[in-house]
Computed example of a mutant assay.
Amino acid sequence: MAKAVKFDRTGGPEVLEVREVEVGEPGTGELRIRVDAIGLNRAELMFREGSYFYQPVFPSGLGYEAAGVVEAVGPGVTGFAVGDPVGVVPSFLQTDYGTYGDHVLVPASARVPRPAGVSAESAAAVWMAYLTAYGALVEDGHTRPGDHVLITAASSSVGLAAIQTANHIGAIPVATTRTADKKQRLLDAGAAHVVVTDEEDLPARLKEITGGTGVRTAFDPVAGPGVETIALGIAPGGRLIVYGTLDPRTTPLPNARSYPALSTRTYTLFEVTSDPERLARAVAFVNAGLSTGSFTPVVDRTFDLEDVSEAHRYMESNAQVGKIVVTVRH
């Protein structure tokens, strides 16, 4: 029997339970993976709460991201063999698959080779964060070397990956944090500038930093009415990219009467992970950054699988800088 995290109703971290389950053999196009580490993501908290863009089907598992070793290969799967170290990227619905367990089935299309020399804990912190940053800042070429990039909620794993990605392509990352507690850590993580939004006027600081023009790209997971403040700090012809809904309130569309001419778009990681060609480019980009040392996943804290509820509580506290990882003992 394997262990898996399940829940029977939406709610707080207390609804999560570690249960014994029968995993079985992988079907066509699937792999069974012995999981060594699991990367936690805000999407999983929202899924557990019932506030994600689709609802769980009970009893439900959860989890988008993991690192481990191939344990069994299903029919039709090529390119991977038993014993291969792999990572799991988010390219499926949590109602179909989940990574919170010690042995899990995943679609073969969701696995990528684990880079040599990268530990399971670090590998579990890579793919959601860096693929999200790649798809928004690199894939379409809008953000150029020398451009200022605003990264809000920058102490998250995606925010830190975006800082490193901006530096990797020669752009200038400008990070935000609500309080000054995390300012120095963001500077140490590579941010060229940090704006403390509880103490500073964001549009004014962005104009000051950029010599009056504003940033070319803003990368925001919060959404809600705050996008209007962000828009005031974007340069004419710039872009506002909203990739999350941490603020559940309606997100207004900045209009030309009040703001510089700019383009706005929503973005989701699935744009990359559901397209094999885009995913291949993204994996090559991220692996290049890992191999050269430009990308260094930041793991804030690890928890044992049995303490998964506590790991969710810690993420809800917003105290972390970087990734929260759950480790699995075999």
Results as ranks from 00 to 15, higher is better:
1 M>S: 01
5 V>E: 05
12 G>E: 03
13 P>D: 07
18 V>K: 00
21 V>Q: 05
21 V>M: 08
24 G>W: 10
25 E>F: 01
29 G>C: 05
31 L>I: 09
33 I>C: 00
44 E>S: 02
52 Y>Q: 01
76 G>R: 09
77 V>S: 08
78 T>Y: 04
79 G>N: 12
92 F>H: 06
97 Y>V: 13
99 T>K: 08
104 V>L: 07
105 L>W: 10
111 R>A: 08
112 V>S: 01
119 S>R: 05
120 A>P: 00
129 A>Y: 07
130 Y>N: 02
134 Y>C: 02
135 G>A: 08
136 A>I: 10
136 A>G: 13
146 G>N: 13
149 V>L: 05
151 I>S: 02
155 S>E: 05
156 S>F: 10
163 I>P: 02
165 T>E: 03
166 A>F: 06
169 I>A: 00
170 G>T: 13
171 A>H: 06
180 A>I: 14
182 K>Q: 03
184 Q>K: 14
186 L>Y: 05
189 A>E: 06
194 V>A: 04
194 V>T: 03
196 V>R: 07
216 R>D: 11
218 A>V: 10
218 A>Y: 08
226 G>E: 15
228 E>A: 02
234 I>G: 09
234 I>P: 03
235 A>T: 15
238 G>H: 14
241 I>V: 15
245 T>P: 00
246 L>T: 01
250 T>H: 02
253 L>I: 15
258 S>K: 10
263 S>P: 05
267 Y>S: 14
267 Y>P: 03
273 T>H: 01
273 T>I: 05
275 D>P: 12
283 V>A: 04
283 V>D: 00
294 S>M: 07
300 D>V: 04
300 D>A: 06
301 R>F: 01
303 F>W: 06
303 F>K: 00
307 D>M: 09
312 H>W: 12
315 M>W: 15
324 I>F: 08
330 H>W: 05
